[in-house]
Structure formats: C-alpha cells, structure tokens
Design a protein around this nucleic acid. Structure first.
Lengths: 419, 419
DNA sequence: CTTATTTAATTCGATCCTCGAAAAAATAAC
DNA sequence: GTTATTTTTTCGAGGATCGAATTAAATAAG
C-alpha cells in the first residue's frame, strides 16, 4: 500500500453480491416481513436480482417464506385481497442465529435473548452490586447469566452469534474496552474480549445513552429518523446522538459526554472528580443534593432511588421552594449543555430520557430560556423537546437492535446457517 | 421506495467501474504522478483492472502518460534506474478541467485558478469592503473577479468545472447557503446558486476554518491524517475538524462553532450578539479590548489589524502586565473551549492557526492548565498542540483542495473531456 | 364453468466488471 | 546476443446486474 486511500470496502463484484444480500437482510430487520416486490422497491434492486439473492438466502437458511400474513399497516401496497398472483412474504428465519442484549445498570444485570427474526426468546435478570465485584468476577457473573438464559432457551434456538452490552460509562469507539465506569473502580477493562472468550461470540460494548438513541431512532423514525440527541438524565447525565442517520462517536471513544461539559468553574463536585460539570447539577444526585441541602462537595455513596426522586418531584409540584430551586438549577445547567450541543452540532431534536424527565415541565422552560437570544447559526427557539421518563426498557431495546445490526454486518451470507 | 434504507450509492456493477476510476483519479490528486503498478498498490485493485481503467481514462482525456519523472521521494519503490521494463508514470491531464478557489476575508477577495493536475494557473485578488456591499453586488463582484482570472488564463486551460468559496461564517451542510457572516448584514444568502448562475459551474461554499483543516489534513498527513481540530484564532474564533478521516459537520450547518460556546455567563459582548462566548475573550478583538482597556460591552467597528496584534504580542513579551493578562484571559477561554472540545469529541491533536498563534507560548500553558485533573474519558495531558500564525495561505490552499476533490466526485469519468 | 385480467416471481440472454495467468514489452546485466 | 527482471497488456473464466419475456397464481367478468 503506497497511497493514502484507505481501500474502501467494496470494489470486487462479489463484494457487491454480499452487500446486496446484507441490504435485503437489513430491510427485513426493520420491516418484519416483505414480499420480493417490496424488497426490490426498498433496496432499489431489480426484481431479478432480488429473486436470485433471496432464493440463495433461503437455501442457506437465512430467510423463510412466511405465511402470507397481511402486512400490519399496509397503506401503499394493496391490502389483503386483490387481483393477481398473491405476494408471498419473506422473513428472517428465527433459528438462523440468536443474539444477546445485556443491560448493565447500578441496580441490575439483565439479559435479553433474541432470535434472528428479532423476537425475544427469554429474559433473565439479577440484582448487581457491581461496585464491590472484582474485575474478573464481573465478567464471569455476566457470562453465567447469559449461559443460564441460553440453557432455558427452547430447542431450535440458533447459536449465539452476537452480543451487545449496554453499560454506563466511556467505551472505546470499537466497543472493546470500558475506559471508565461509575459502576467499577477499574479502568480500561477489556470486557469485550473477556466475555467473547467465555461466550464464544462477538461481543461489543456500547454506551447506555447511545443504546437509548438507537432504540428511539429505530422505533420512532418519524421523530428521530434524522438528526437528534438523546440526553439521559438518570444517575448521571449522558448523551447519544444520531447525525446523518448514523450514531455519532468521537475520535477514540463513544464521546459526546455532554454531562461533563464544564458549567460552573470550581462548582459542585461531579462523579468524575472534577468540579462544576453539568452532571453535578442536572443528575439525580445533583438534584438530590440541592433539594436536601446536602454538601455539594460530596458525591453521595448510594444513588438516590426512583422513589426519592419521585418524592422531590412531588415536593416541587407542591410548591416546596428548595425542591423547585433544585430543578431550576438543573435546568440552567441543562440549558448550558443544550446551548453547547447546539453550538457544536446544530439545533437538533432532543429527547430527554430517564427520571429527570419526571419533572420535565419544571425545568424545560429554564432550558429554553438559555436558548433565546442571538446566535451565529440557525434559530434555536423552534427546537423540539420530548420527555421519556422510562429508560431501562429503551436501553435494552437499543441493545437488542444493536446486537442484531452488528450481526447483520458480520454474518456469513454465503454459507449455510446451522439450526 | 417503501423501506427506510437510503439506497446507498453503489449497487450496480457499472457503478463499480466508475467508483474505481474515481479512486484512481483521487490517488493521482494526492501523489502527482504514479505508475500503473503503484496505482494498483494504492487502490488495492488488480493490475489488469488498473490497466483497463487507465487506458479508458487516457482515451477520455482525464489522464496523460507523463515523462518518466523519478518520483520526488521514492523510498519503497526502486528509484530511477533498475532492471526490467521501466514504469511509465500517469498523471492528471492539466487541460481536462480547471477549478477556482475563492478566499474571502474582511480585507480581500482572492481567486486561485487551478488546473486539473493541481497546478495554479493564475491568481487575482482585490481589496474588499464587503460589509458595505449590497447583497447582489457581492456575488457579481466575486464573479467578475473570477472572470478576470479566466480571461488571463493561457489557451488550453480546461473549462471551469468546480468552484470552492472559503468564507467566514456559518454555511449550511450542503455548501449552498451562507446563513450568517460577520462580513455582511444579510442572512441566509443563497450565494452558491447566484455564483453558479453567472459562472456556469458547480459552486460550493465552505467555512474558512474547515478549509484550513482540509489544507492541513492534505499536506501534513503525518500530523493531521487522522482525527484533529484546527482552531482559527483570527478576527473571530472558528474551528474545523477531521473525524475518522473526513471533515466533520453538524446536522444542518458546518457547525462546530467552538468560538461561540458559552464561557462566562453575562460576560463580554461577542460579535454574535450574545455575552460571554469564548470568542469574546480569545479573538483578536477580545484580546485587543482587554489589552487596551476598551469597553468589553462594545465590539470595535474596525477589526484590529495584524500590526496592532503584533504590537500587543510584543508588549506582552516585554512584560506589560495588561497585555499579559489579556493573553491569560484568552488562554482561560480557550482552555474552556478545548476542554469542551475534548469532552464532546475526545482528546485530539489541535492546530492553532492565525494571528492568535503569534503569542502561542504566552497562553498555551494556561490552556493546558484547564485540561489537568480527572476526567471520565481518556487522559487529556498528552494532547499535541501546534501553532500556525499564517492563515490566509492555508485557507486558499484548503479551498483549492476542496474544489479539486468536489470536482473528482462529480466529474463524468466515462465521457470525453474537452480541451 | 370458462376466459380474460392482473400482479408476482422466475428464467434467460446480454452486457459489464474484476481477477488470475500467460504473453508481450522494455530495459539492465552478463 | 542472450538472459534476467520488471512493467504492462491481453485473454478467458467466473460472477453480478439488468431488462424482457415467460411462467405462476389468483380474482373478476362473461
């Protein structure tokens, strides 16, 4: 290799075939079942190419001809009956493979086992006191939970082929190393490799907020199909963002740590060890500290639970000045974060996810206040905000989607699938 | 189109051919002359494919067989003489097309006319009092300067096929609209379309800092080949950044306006109309205000010239407390900006470009100070900083590269080139 | 009940692309 | 002059896509 050209992926004609097969699989990941004609329209390929590719994919066990279920919401195409030869739907064969989505939070470890078609096979979860675990135990604990789930899976389940791990903290861009996490004192842990060894499948780590963004992007394309940010207001403050239809990440890590943008120099102590980060004011513990009058220079050892946060929200709603002020401060910090977000990435739709969205109406006006006034770019006032108080479900949903989509990128589309 | 798949670019086999031809042209844009064997190595294509593609490109007038110049710095390959059939170098045929690079600053408008091989044909510039021009005059002024240059070009010059305009301010992501510029009171000007009409070529606008980043990326790949930011410290504070080998841009504009990240709430007045932006402290006018004791609530009408800034740098070097403090304040603001940059994009190499880099050694330690301490991500201390006091040359250089690379993406590689 | 109509899917031939191996070309060394 | 070496071209094989024609399967009409 002499030149600087990074020799892009596709340049031989058989790469083309593989890529087009992948495109068909991807289309069927989003739309559960499609006829060959619809696949041709969706992928832009000709009917003959789709016919050839799908018959190969059926032969290799990737696809099956589904019962001609009338598509769930069939607007454009003719519905149920009609003249002409009826279309026969294709879908991904459930037994072709299976994937695991792991959702690791401070409170619990959860695994979702999902088949190739995207249906959940089984779910397991257990409480986690992750902070007290030795580094090696952490990985083996996760592995054994996955193996428990695999053991409970019915016969005919495809081999575990891809694992996505949603975890709080900073993950490298390749999803292999956990650089920093609030759940563990260890740094730069090669968790993906450890899990891959015991599970015998490709494992990718991912930031929790990124997974939430992936879930929203996949499930609500009308709101979150293009460019948007998902800001996770939970124990900490994280962000996942889609730019140009793909998940944004930094030069070397998942990055976009909007929660650790400096807000007030020498201010309240943040979990990361610095003073004055946005998170120190807008996170659960930040709001809890301000509402209870706790020392802003100390990070509480135990995270406030959902009940405690709901209590503060209730007090604020009832007019408690201290609680209201806590939320207003959080709003100012968030306003700073969103203003920074807009300055760096442009106005985008923002979804606020997690317990912080419980009191959405209390701090949302404060955030908007920070966005008023002149700017060098686009007008900020019209930005759309959405609140999603629930976060765990979105995290695991995003991990499922990510595991499936990782699999689609690596699966061998030419060889026979076991099962 | 039913599905959400955006029907990616390449799926027919003749797309493949076109793409591979483009890859060959691109390799020859970076390395002026390469033999077929070298092209095969650089692109990853087989010798026979390169042979076929290049003979077509020669027939269509895109390439010519150059005199067998020994490659300028030929380490890997055999140099000059040797056994065997001598390699015959190929290069882009100068007359196949020409491009124009426009560099518009507060002081001057400059046009560089460049041939398809990348050599400058001719250059023109004239002073600009852009602020006082009517919107329509602005475009016609630029057009006529380009036409003057074209008239002075020797016979055999290829037709003008691509124009890149480097301009201060906020440009939309497609390079068509100038949303905001300090040089003009008008907003959302469709400058690209206006120029395209009179010049009869594709015109793309680009942010000035982005062009500087493009120049550094292209000309110093060992330093700036991967991920890096170029922070322009001139009349304002702008930023261009490469992430994963491509120029970063926001959802709808060039974005990455690190100069307008909020630094001190209710602080000094910024050109953008807000108070407390980083730019209000770290730009030429910000430093000038602080060093001369001018009102921080007023933006000077006339930008301080290069001599004035050099004077302040000299005063600071001589120990003038007021000047030193101005640079230290600029350093603190820049530190905030870089800390935000690192939090959002990860630690990357940074090039500081423009007059601000004149006093690099005065504020660089202050910036580094802000980066010390704990963080949730990668360590910040080892980041590399470089200073480049000159900026106009880099801007026009980046515009040339961008114009050529835009052309390479749109040029018809199958049909005969005039000339 | 038979026939026409309509839509879906497949088959077939043409064209195009890339690649590997072999041949041709051009020079240096002996 | 012959041989060795390296570059470039030629040629045939193997795939891939596409459009047109064909086959398949159902409904509507007479």
């Amino acid at each position: 290799m002499v030149g600087p050209t990074p020799a892009a992926a596709i340049q031989r004609s058989d790469d083309l075939r593989r890529q087009n097969k992948r495109r068909i699989l991807a289309a069927l990941r989003v739309q559960r079942a499609l006829a060959r004609t619809e696949l041709a329209a969706a992928t832009g390929l000709s009917a003959s190419t789709v016919s050839a590719a799908t018959s190969e994919l059926i032969a290799t066990g990737h696809l099956v001809e589904a019962d001609l279920t009338p598509a769930p919401d069939d607007d454009t195409a003719r519905s149920a009956g009609g003249r002409g030869r009826p279309r026969v739907a294709l879908s991904r064969r459930p037994g072709a493979a299976s994937v695991a989505a792991l959702t690791i939070t401070v409170n619990a470890i959860q695994v979702d086992l999902v088949d190739f078609a995207g249906d959940t096979i089984c779910t397991r979860s257990e409480p986690s006191r992750t902070g007290s675990l030795a580094q090696a135990d952490f990985a083996s604990r996760i592995s054994s939970l996955v193996e428990t789930a695999l053991a409970a899976a019915p016969k005919g389940t495809g081999p575990l082929s891809s694992v996505a791990v949603a975890v709080q903290g900073v993950v490298d861009a390749e999803g292999e190393v956990l650089h920093w996490s609030p759940m563990s004192p260890h740094r730069n842990v090669g968790l993906a490799a450890e899990l891959s060894r015991t599970l015998g499948a490709e494992v990718r780590l991912a930031n929790d907020a990124d997974m939430i963004a992936a879930a929203l992007h996949h499930d609500e394309p009308e709101r979150f199909g293009g460019d948007f940010a998902a800001i996770l207001l939970s124990y900490g403050v994280g962000m996942g963002m889609f730019l140009g239809g793909t998940l944004f990440h930094g030069a070397r890590t998942s990055a976009a740590e909007i929660g650790h943008v400096p807000f007030e120099a020498g201010g309240a102590l943040c979990r990361c060890g610095r003073f004055g980060c946005v998170e120190a004011y807008a996170s659960e513990y930040g709001i809890w500290r301000a509402a209870t009058g706790a020392d802003p220079r100390v990070v509480p050892a135990e995270p406030p639970d959902r009940a405690a946060m709901a209590g503060i929200a209730a007090r604020a709603a009832a007019g408690d000045a201290c609680a209201i002020e806590a939320y207003r401060t959080a709003g100012r910090a968030l306003g700073h974060a969103v203003l920074t977000l807009y300055t760096v990435f442009d106005p985008v739709t923002v979804a606020f996810v997690g317990s912080g969205a419980l009191a959405f109406d209390l701090w949302e006006p404060v955030v908007r206040e920070a966005l008023c006034g002149p700017s060098t770019g686009l007008p900020y006032e019209g930005a759309l905000f959405y609140g999603y108080p629930e976060n765990i479900g979105l995290m695991s949903r995003g991990a499922v989607i990510t595991a499936l989509s990782n699999l689609d990128r690596t699966i061998d589309v030419d060889r026979l699938q076991s099962g």
